[in-house]
Write a protein that binds this DNA or RNA. Sequence first.
DNA 1: CCGCTGACTTAGCAAACGTTAATGTGACAC
DNA 2: GTGTCACATTAACGTTTGCTAAGTCAGCGG
Lengths: 260, 260
Amino acid sequence: MQAGFAFSKLADRLSSLTDLTTQDLDLLAHMPSTIVHVGAHQTVVRHHGETEHCCLLLQGYLCWHVAAGQDGQITSIYVPGDVPDLPTLYHPSAGANLVALGSAVIALVPHDFFRELSANSPAMSRALLLMMLADLAIQRNWTVTLGSRDALCRVAHLLCEIRERLHGVGLAKDFSFSSPFTQSDLAAACGISPVHANRTIQELRRRNLLQWHGKTMTITDWPGLVRLAGFDPAYLHTRPHGGGARPPQPAAVSMGVELA
Amino acid sequence: MQAGFAFSKLADRLSSLTDLTTQDLDLLAHMPSTIVHVGAHQTVVRHHGETEHCCLLLQGYLCWHVAAGQDGQITSIYVPGDVPDLPTLYHPSAGANLVALGSAVIALVPHDFFRELSANSPAMSRALLLMMLADLAIQRNWTVTLGSRDALCRVAHLLCEIRERLHGVGLAKDFSFSSPFTQSDLAAACGISPVHANRTIQELRRRNLLQWHGKTMTITDWPGLVRLAGFDPAYLHTRPHGGGARPPQPAAVSMGVELA
DNA sequence: CCGCTGACTTAGCAAACGTTAATGTGACAC
DNA sequence: GTGTCACATTAACGTTTGCTAAGTCAGCGG
């Protein structure tokens, strides 16, 4: 975990949402952060107790987990570059636990850094807002999925979303990516029972849509999975900007239509 | 629809989220708006085509409606004082249609007004942000409901939420409120079939939890409905501040911890 | 080598829910 | 009145999914 790693993860993610000048991105260079390694199913942030930090996810997956129903419900899943608890800057209570899916690495960043960041740069302020709005759009989409699709489509759609979001930050280059989830995790995210999640995954395998060995998942028929899921990546709000592996743009001068 | 009505609906809603000075609220007095009456199930904003206005809901209900599954899916419901498409200020595509549930009255407010508002008042900027974050929190809660509760609890929970949000803006004083929804509307919001929605509502009536005659719903056993639904209003982010009918606070000096 | 543990797998049964279709009911126009 | 329309209601039947329980398998520490 070399120095500056946390900085670049966030820079990539914010750049995927809106145009940022190198001047804006340089503001991230001074980001104070504490690196923390988290074990599988370990809770990072409890919904009680306020904190003075946000969690920037560097590696692995995090999720919001609510104790409800039989096995609880996962309401959101996050990939590297995301800051799941950004809203705690403005409103203290999260209403859920932030839990690691598989082992993960996070950077704790003081609230004050983000406050100063958005005070000093309208563009960065806008980018942070867009990150929260992307979260809202994703959450809306989960509502559609849970409300109107059956188990097979739900799981397929979730996997499409994860692959696409990973791709947006330069991971999952081909259709293979780290998948430390348990079947029960998938079940909790899709609102089905663990047993039925098992049936569903087997059906996806039977249709030759994916392979899942150990902690690596490979989507072997992306168009097929997309079709089955009815997946349309537009809601993710990532710009057409292509592969996520591109270096932060050179010295592109943004026209700076800043808002708030 | 007397003059200033639109202004006061928005002022009440924003005041329910955070402390605002009369100076801040006065900025709303100049709000330009076009009043529009909308018929039942009429579409207000299509997810294509960008607009230069936001919709402030003055009377009735609006919802985001996505064409998915058999009868589509409703992803959010809005009550008077809400501005459902506030995010279009920052991101053009809505990804769904904004549809009226029953007849409604809205005020079209130019984007530029909100832009100037948040530029001129950090407190108002924060209030608008909090309104979007409240939306996010509600959306998370819908995810929990759709993912982990059965039909009876889903409908009960939705009704609890609507009553509580109405109460927060001074409507539904006792437990009686306008309910122009069709059973199919409720079904589309709860992710169940219209037929099953009917069965569910009858069960709620049978348990003496509510009455629903014509376009008026009366919750006859609020504690019972809350218990059945597992409803905890904390996620709504409305302050303990009591009834919504209170006049805008006198000249309270906010400590102004403004952020962005 | 053994036992333990967590995760995955499989089967059988029951409950919740969807689908279809027919019927009922009230508002409204003519 | 009578037709029409949208909505509510009811019934019968089929499917999806949840639940329980048992069995398998790989890793891991003794």
